[in-house]
């Protein structure tokens, strides 16, 4: 039993070290290598931005819209008892911008793009494509991980902003239709209580989530072993680990923002 626990701990520590070393590698290729004239291909970054960002717009819009709808209905159920239905607007906006939109968007993107990154890199690994890059003296981290990393880092916050808007739209639809709040009043209440810090704390979170998704997806993909089954395992692991880390990071960041009164 002790051996078993020991093995798990050693394995986990080793993985954490490997993930950190991948992060440092990526940071090296982003910030240091360009000075040595080894830049990442721009078209590859745009290609990934389209795949990760643009193609996720639809799903992020709908997930956030319905979250806004549900949130409005659930809070209205409570607030009706106190006769404060109007505050549905600010409650929906603040909880979406600070918490729900960054987390849900990150989870959706982890499920969609994170898994795709792991599967693509995993397939490349098992079909010797990564090895081929190495023999061509092309660093796989620069060529494959860095574009995905940069694309996620910029696109996830953009998607989160989209999520904020569509969530507020969802709340607006419920508020103005079934709760009979005047549309002007709804929007006024929304922006009256919504502060800039609510937006940027949410966006700070989404930057961190982007790093988590890219890092885990690339790490699992580049360390895939054992054929099709290995690719499946890497994909599943990337989603599971990303989900856990996103929630964990959210918890830690929320605590930091809360205690530092942000």
């Amino acid at each position: 039993m002790v051996t078993f626990i020991g093995r798990i701990i050693i394995g986990t520590v080793r993985e954490v070290i490997n993930i950190c070393s991948l992060l440092f590698d990526v940071l090296y290729w982003i910030f240091v290598a360009p000075f040595k004239r080894k830049v990442c291909r721009r078209e590859s970054i745009f290609h990934q931005m389209i795949f990760i960002g643009l193609r996720s717009v639809f799903i992020v819009f709908f997930v956030s819209l319905f979250t806004g709808v549900v949130l409005a209905m659930q809070t209205a159920y409570q607030l009706e008892k106190m006769g404060a239905v109007l505050y549905v607007a600010s409650l929906v906006a603040i909880s979406l911008c600070r918490e729900l939109s960054p987390v849900f968007t990150a989870l959706v993107v982890a499920g969609r793009a994170g898994s795709a990154i792991a599967a693509e890199l995993g397939t490349m690994k098992v079909s010797e494509q990564i090895e081929a890059l190495e023999t061509m003296a092309i660093n796989p981290i620069r060529f494959l991980a860095v574009p995905r990393f940069i694309a996620l880092f910029f696109m996830l916050p953009c998607l989160t902003v989209l999520g904020n808007f569509s969530g507020i739209l969802g709340g607006f639809i419920v508020g103005t239709s079934s709760l009979h709040i005047n549309s002007d009043l709804y929007m006024q209440t929304t922006f009256k209580y919504l502060e800039l810090k609510d937006i940027y704390t949410g966006l700070t979170k989404s930057f961190v989530f982007a790093i988590i998704i890219a890092l885990i997806g690339c790490y699992e993909g580049l360390n895939t072993r054992g054929g099709a089954e290995g690719v499946g395992r890497a994909t599943t692991r990337s989603v599971v680990i990303s989900f856990i880390l996103i929630i964990l990071a959210d918890c830690v960041l929320t605590a930091i923002f809360y205690f530092s009164k942000m």
């Binding site: 693509e120 490349m124 079909s127 494509q129 090895e131 081929a132 890059l133 023999t135 061509m136 003296a137």
Partner: peptide
């Protein structure tokens, strides 16, 4: 240094290992 040496050779892989994308 290894990359410099690698530029002077090519490799054909068993399953070609062309980049799918």
């Amino acid at each position: 240094g290894l990359d410099e040496v690698r530029k002077s050779f090519g490799m054909l892989f068993q399953y070609s290992a062309l980049l799918d994308s």
